[in-house]
Amino acid sequence: MITIAIADDHKLMSEGIASILQSDADLSIVKICNNGRELVEYLRAHTVDLVLVDLNMPILDGPDTIRIIKNDRIPCKIVVLSMYADENVYAKCRELDIHGYLHKDSDAQHLIDTIKRIHNGNNHYDYDHTTMANEPSKLFDDKFLNKFKLSPRELEIIALVSNGLTNNEIADKLFLSVHTVMTHRKNILHKLAVRNTAEMLSLINNS
């Protein structure tokens, strides 16, 4: 049994993640905290295998929470669960020497499988599945991003489609199911108000 504590000030988000993880018999959510200070206090009194930490929290934010956990030599795996797919944010998290970096819109099975891999000693960073060329700011201008309000995962998939990857290849690269990739692509077409991939790529190239 892998014991997990979650620190996220968004109650619906933390409870949703807890529900997903506890659907697997190997995972147990032992604590949900509203901020970093609450998490640190809990870890000082209890043993936990892995913590999921949001970056933006009141009282004590994610980076400072991680620094305290490391300075106190608390023996647990540290995973950042973030909505950001930004190079600078990602780089700062890597500097903290965390064990994993996951997007909040990750596929449920990807989240479960990745936590198990991290617990078994394998670091994992979702951002590693994109390249600098696929960073949204490199592909899309601010006008495009502000107009269409695409999620980080949708931007990743658009970038990979632009590079010629198939649904199966995208699924393998992002550790998603093919069905999830297809659902994302359908949602992307709807948000962009285009009928097919050719029109999507034309819109992007002309943006």
Rank of each mutant, 00 (worst) to 15 (best):
I69K: 01
I69S: 01
K70M: 07
K70D: 03
D72N: 01
D72H: 03
R73D: 11
P75W: 10
P75E: 14
C76R: 04
C76E: 04
K77L: 04
K77S: 05
K77M: 07
I78V: 15
V79K: 06
V79C: 07
L81N: 12
L81T: 09
M83R: 05
Y84S: 06
Y84L: 11
A85Y: 07
A85T: 10
E87L: 12
N88T: 13
N88P: 00
Y90C: 09
K92S: 15
K92T: 15
R94P: 00
E95G: 09
E95H: 14
L96C: 08
L96T: 11
D97I: 13
D97P: 09
H99Y: 05
G100N: 11
G100F: 03
Y101F: 15
K104W: 04
A108Q: 12
A108V: 02
Q109R: 11
Q109I: 06
Q109E: 13
H110N: 12
H110C: 10
T114W: 08
T114D: 12
T114I: 14
I115W: 04
I115A: 09
I115E: 06
R117V: 10
R117S: 14
R117C: 09
I118A: 05
G121D: 08
N122H: 15
N122T: 14
H124K: 06
Y127I: 15
Y127P: 04
Y127T: 09
D128K: 15
H129K: 10
T130Y: 06
T130V: 12
T130D: 06
A133Y: 13
N134L: 07
N134G: 10
E135M: 07
E135A: 10
P136Q: 13
K138I: 07
D142G: 07
K143S: 14
K143V: 14
F144P: 05
F144W: 06
L145Q: 15
N146D: 05
K147E: 14
F148V: 11
F148C: 09
K149I: 05
S151I: 03
R153F: 00
R153L: 06
E154Y: 03
E154M: 11
L155M: 14
I158Y: 05
A159C: 05
L160K: 15
L160N: 10
V161P: 03
V161I: 15
S162M: 13
G164H: 12
N168G: 07
E169W: 02
E169M: 08
I170W: 04
I170H: 04
A171K: 02
D172C: 00
K173Y: 00
L174D: 02
L176K: 06
L176W: 01
H179Q: 10
M182W: 01
T183L: 02
K186H: 08
I188S: 03
I188L: 08
H190C: 08
H190D: 14
L192A: 08
L192C: 06
A193C: 01
A193P: 00
V194N: 00
V194R: 02
N196K: 00
